[in-house]
Structure formats: C-alpha cells, structure tokens
C-alpha cells in the first residue's frame, strides 16, 4: 500500500499582488507566491519581512487589503473552516494553556481539526522526546514548539503551514523534524516552511522564495537561484593579478600576498576561467554560494545592521 499522492495541476498556494498594512506600516507590498501541490517550499526572509503576515492571511486570521489569495483553490478568508480541515499550522511563537498538559493540548488541537492518528501521535512524541504529561506553563519554548509540531504532524492533512517551526529546537530535534518533513513530502503533502535558518531550508526545500520588505525578490529552485548569483573563487599565484579586477563580472578582488579571493557572476565564469589559465595558478578553491550569501546579496545592509545591533 502506497501513500496517497496528492499532486494535481492546481497550485496549493497561489498568491498575486497581495497587500496588507497595519495603519501606516506596510507589511505586504504586492507579494506573489506560488507553491505547487506536493512541494516543500522554503519561505525565506529576515524578521519583519512579512513571512508571518503572509501565513496568517493564508489561515484567514488576517484579512488582506488587496490582491488575490487561493489556498487549495479556495479563498482562505471566506472558506477558512473548510480549508482548516485540510491544513495544519505551527505558529512561530507557540503559547499553551498554563493548566492544560501538553498531551491535552495536542489531542484538543488535533480533534478540533477533525481527528488524528493516535499511534502516530505517540510515535511523534517519542521521536521529539516530548513528555506530554507536563503542564503548559512548565514547558520551555522549544517544548511548546514540539507540542504544536506533534499536533500538526499527527494530522492527516494536505498542507502544512510552518512558521519558523524549529527556532527553539536543538540540533538533534531538528534532525527529527527534517525526517518528519521528508515523510510528509513522500506522503504528497504540501509544506510551506518559513525560516531564517537557511541550512534547514537548503536541506528540505524543493523551491525557495525570498521575501524582503513585503515582496518576493527571488523565487525558484536552489539551482535556479544559484544561477543568478556569484561563485566565490580563491587562487594561489605568484603572477600579478591586476588584470582580474578589470574583467567583466568580477567583484570584490582581495589580494593577500599570493592568495587572491574574488567573486564571479554566474554568467561570466567562462571568461574568468580562461584568464586564470594564464596566471600559473598553484591552488584553487571555488564554492557555490550558500543561502547566506543569497540573502546577503539581497539584504546585505539589513544583516550588517542587525549584526551591529546584536553586539
């Protein structure tokens, strides 16, 4: 018996020109987002970029100011209750009832969604090393998150909306989480995974959308996004390298004795490699951009700013 496959031609999430503002603050400024059925979609962006607002509009918790939003082909505001039978949601900040146990909260949320598999629930508690008998007020942030994750993952739903689901989890639990998301994908579920933990999205996502200041600035598969970006190259050579800086597509040349580091736009790699052949290169390392670099390119100013603020 194989898991049900839910892929269809209708995208699971289809958002066009979505707008939302809180008073004078614009949270979403013409956001477009498409997530295909059965896809694990990484939703990347810094804090305050509009990730949670988008997800809360998809849940019908917030009303959009403009644009169209379709979730599983339906309107999330008008058809909220029907849609919620087919989706599970994990908020970024999980709050539990102080005097309900974690187990009670899991059962309650699953039942309100339309029931869950009891064996699956126990198995998930085991995998996430969660003690369901503790009262809500005694859980740490990470454990509250596990309660919400178990409640969401134990349900038989089509779509998982996960808002920074692992922000409080340790690396071991993150591995358990990644395994669960892969299982969800194999079962044909659509997953929208918002995060600023880039490594996690890199490992799990089929496609990625990067949001900045309420707009999607990049969207595509990891390979497609890499195509748009620069490759970082470090060479060792005794020859003068003045020519390199003048080549089209080369940026940030830094010379440290015999070691030269620079970045090359994806479209200009061929010419640069030809030029390197004449430099008697003794050592060469090249690495593809990490998602950190993708983000740095888009929000370099903000990341530098927040890094300073954290100091």
């Amino acid at each position: 018996m194989s898991a049900p496959v839910r892929r269809t031609d209708v995208p699971a999430i289809d958002i066009h020109d979505l707008r939302k503002s809180y008073g004078s603050v614009t949270a979403l400024d013409g956001l477009d987002l498409q997530v295909g059925a059965g896809e694990v979609h990484g939703f990347l962006g810094p804090n305050g970029a509009g990730k949670s607002t988008t997800i809360r509009i998809l849940l019908g918790l917030l009303r959009s100011d403009g644009g169209t939003v379709r979730l599983l082909g339906a309107d999330p505001w008008a058809d909220a209750v029907e849609l919620h039978r087919r989706l599970a949601y994990v908020p970024g900040d999980v709050e539990l009832w102080p005097n309900l146990s974690g187990g009670e909260a899991i059962d309650l949320l699953s039942r309100l969604r339309g029931g869950s598999d009891s064996a699956r629930r126990d198995e998930l508690c085991e995998r996430f090393d969660l003690d369901p008998t503790k009262k809500g007020r005694t859980y740490s942030k990470g454990n509250r998150q596990k309660v919400a994750l178990v409640a969401a993952l134990a349900s038989d739903v089509d779509v998982l909306l996960l808002d920074e689901p692992t922000a409080g989890l340790d690396p071991l639990m993150e591995a358990a989480f990644q395994a669960c998301i892969r299982e969800a994908k194999d079962a044909g579920r659509t997953v929208l995974l918002s995060s600023h933990i880039l490594a996690q999205v890199e490992v799990l996502a089929d496609r990625i959308s990067i949001i900045r200041q309420g707009r999607i600035v990049e969207s595509g598969s990891l390979t497609e996004l890499r195509h748009l970006t620069r490759t970082s190259i470090t060479i060792l050579t005794d020859r003068p390298t003045d020519r390199l800086g003048g080549l089209a597509g080369v940026h940030n040349v830094q010379v440290d004795g015999a070691q030269v580091t620079f970045e090359v736009d994806g479209a200009h790699v061929r010419e640069v490699v030809k030029a390197l052949a004449e430099l008697d290169v003794q050592g060469l390392t090249a690495h593809p951009p990490t998602l950190e670099q993708l983000l740095l390119r888009h929000y370099g100013d903000e990341l530098a700013h927040s890094a300073q603020g954290a100091r």
Binding site: R56, L59, L61, A80, V81, E82, H84, R85, L87, A88, Y89, P91, V94, L109, L112, R113, G114, A148, A151, L161
Partner: peptide
C-alpha cells in the same frame, strides 16, 4: 490562533 487555525469558526 492555533485554535482558529483548526476547523473552528
């Protein structure tokens, strides 16, 4: 929020 995220109107 989590409760309204389930099939509760």
């Amino acid at each position: 929020e989590p409760v309204l995220g389930t099939a509760v109107s």
